[in-house]
Design a protein around this nucleic acid. Structure first.
Lengths: 217, 217
DNA sequence: GGAACGTACGACCGGTCGTGCTATGTTGTC
DNA sequence: GACAACATAGCACGACCGGTCGTACGTTCC
């Protein structure tokens, strides 16, 4: 109740500032490395040398490899939220958000935030066959993202921005498919042209003019 | 010129029957294991114990791990051809083949030929960041598959089975997306209901009646 | 100022990795 | 039935894996 007691509790658990900084650096490097080597292929030794510290020094931050994986997935989720979800939410609700989330994703790829494309896409396929807390975390993230798209679609429908016969679930499924295949093709062929094609397809699928790329009518 | 010389040549190069058999068994197990552990995570020791032989015995069949990976990808390609491509080609050309290839893929998943879903989908994302002959082989396979779908779509268009404004490339891209996201969801959530949803979406996307599942009008 | 703690290090453990070499059955051909 | 080619096993190697120690240097807090 007193802030003295509060302070004691905080004091007992407060991590040091420099520790937080290195922890962040570790996780950012881990997320990048994981899109290349996979979450399972991510080795503590590799990661340690990549950021220039000893294995055991790094290990002090995470009690086990699984803890490192979980923290890495969370970090990747934070980055995804920042680069894809927030730009989409900044658009006007409805169809605009539906388009914005796709384009934000394509920009996310174009920017090459991670060398291996979308972290979650790789992680989902890799961890799909490996039951455990890491898989659950990835699955939860994926479900939340689909729900987000579905919500955008539902709003667009309510606002009569889409044909009445469209179904939010099916549309979310399709758009998620376009997003996934774009990621796969982009990573596999290393061709930014895929992103333009994908954007064109999203526009056409949603009934927008495909010739204009940035027009706001 | 004489069949005597012919026989000598054949005799010199013909591998033993049991060797061929075990090699096939190795590759089938390797393809399955690779969908769980990944092509890179596929270890010779693991594979050897999985089929009950020694590491070195197995190793004699393939000079290196990369050779094993290449042979495994080819084997997976053969299986995919058999389970997905051939059933599609058996349907009447055009729209029917377009639907058939999707449904054959979904059946391929439902049948759980591989524990980790579609081999090529996993391999594409995993090897995308790892340049080399294995990646090229996977990429070539993926390109061939997209070309196949595009061909089906083009034929369907020529036969006026699809709206004239459709584009084969874009449609192939979209269908490939649906296929990929279906695989990902199926693997991640282990839910066959995804396959029914996916089939419904394909039907609606192609302008077919979504209520009938196996009707042939 | 000193105790406790967060941070990082180097050395090391048992295990597994991919990869060779050698030896020994096994098979197919003459 | 002899003999060569093939298939497989045994064994050992260097490297790397995840993980654990003991230790040491700064902070932070009482």
């Amino acid at each position: 109740m007193s802030d003295a007691a509060d302070q004691i509790i905080r004091a007992q658990r407060r991590p040091r500032a420099d520790g937080e900084r290195t922890r962040g650096a570790i996780l950012r490097a881990a997320a990048s490395l994981a899109t290349v080597d996979g979450l399972e292929g991510l080795s503590i030794g590799n990661l340690a040398t990549a950021i220039g510290m000893s294995k055991s020094g790094l290990y002090a931050h995470f009690g086990s490899k699984q803890e490192l994986q979980l923290a890495t997935v969370e970090e990747a989720g934070r980055i995804f939220e920042e680069e894809v979800v927030q730009p989409a939410l900044a658009a006007p609700p409805g169809l605009d958000q539906l388009v914005a989330v796709c384009e934000a994703f394509f920009d996310h790829l174009r920017r090459r935030t991670f060398p291996g494309g979308c972290f979650m896409a790789s992680a989902a396929l890799e961890m799909g066959t490996r039951p455990g807390p890491v898989k659950e975390l990835v699955a939860a993230f994926q479900s939340r993202f689909v729900a987000l798209i579905r919500g955008f679609a539902a709003t667009a429908l309510e606002q009569n921005e889409l044909p009445a016969h469209e179904d939010p679930d099916q549309l979310a499924f399709e758009l998620n498919g376009i997003i996934l295949v774009t990621d796969t093709n982009f990573v596999l062929h290393d061709d930014p042209g895929v992103l333009d094609l994908a954007r064109q397809i999203v526009h056409r699928r949603l009934g927008l003019d495909s010739h204009r790329t940035a027009g706001q009518t």
